[in-house]
């Protein structure tokens, strides 16, 4: 099919197109999902107390 020499290359070709379409549809379906904005637990550039050292 499509003039390729074996089924594996044909499959890869179809999967490339299929996975792109899947991403487009998935992205559009979830266009407005997950809108929360977490509050940072550390203020900007505050030093964090690490428990180990090197």
């Amino acid at each position: 099919m499509f003039g390729f020499g074996d089924i594996w290359v044909t499959l890869a070709y179809l999967l490339c197109i299929g996975s792109t379409l899947f991403c487009i549809i998935y992205g559009i379906r979830h266009w407005n999902d997950d809108v929360e904005m977490p509050t940072p637990t550390h203020p900007e550039d505050e030093n964090t107390d690490f428990e180990d050292t090197i």
Binding site: I24, D33, V35
Partner: peptide, 19 residues
């Protein structure tokens, strides 16, 4: 990015670009 919503939206241009 600001929130997870942006990552869903980025799927569309991202996948077309990489393909």
């Amino acid at each position: 990015v600001k929130s997870g919503k942006e990552l869903y939206r980025a799927l569309v241009p991202g996948s077309i670009f990489i393909m």
